[in-house]
Amino acid sequence: MSHIHIPDGVLPVWLWLSGWIVAVALVWLASALSARSDIRRKVPLVGIVSALVLVAMSSEIVPIAYHINLTVVAGVLLGPQLAIISAFVVQVVLALLGHGGVTVIGLNTLMTMTEMLLGWALFRGFVKLLGRGHVRAASAVTTVITLAITTTLLVGLVAVSGVTAATARETGALNPRNLTFASPFSKGVVGIGLFSGRQTATAPAVGLKRFATIVYTLGPIGWIIEALVTAAVLGYVARVRPSLVFEGPLAVAEPVLPGDEHGVH
């Protein structure tokens, strides 16, 4: 669950605005830290890996409303600092292509970022535990755990936004008359009928339980598909070019010119 598929104008303003503030702060921090080190030479790598994630996300498995994300792969390849930048870039481009809202870019960045960072940390931990010969198993387990955690985060996010039977959900629009966030479903066009305007508003029976049930039913199918793809891709890369997987982006050796193997000109 690399990003929340909730459109603009559904989540409360305070929630998506907080998402934006935290995400922007983290992106600025990552950029500032990058300025101190030689990460700048890896900007094309950030671009390429982000593009790879976007290409993977563009193919959707319709029956379960899931698409491959490759976020764990991106996290392993980029490392924590660059992963934060990549998560933001991916979400901005996705929003511009109409996939995912603009107001939720902040929250989506945090979700993707969490997935990439967790993926990176867990993968390294599992490789240490299981050994370098078990990259596929390490990546599969990492992916399933990571996706399970971020799916739970998504359900938590929806719970925080007020989608419960007790509280009416609001669209995030501030009512200037009384400076409160009024529920459109309790007194707007939905609540009082399309034209009558006289019916009494009723509190909606919105089910967080229903939402969680659907997400946790369809989600695991997606997690398994993602785990298989991640395991296959990382297993292949670990076999063909191990330094990419085991040493991180900054450890990738610079190409050596023929005749300059020892750095002598």
Binding site: V46, V55, I85, S86, V89
Partner: peptide, 24 residues
């Protein structure tokens, strides 16, 4: 967007979009 984002993010945005065409 580049005017309000850090240099690293602005450059990464441009390179990402260009790379999508190549990779696809």
């Amino acid at each position: 967007a580049q005017r309000v984002t850090p240099a690293l993010v602005g450059d990464a945005l441009l390179m990402t979009y260009r790379a999508i065409f190549i990779l696809a």
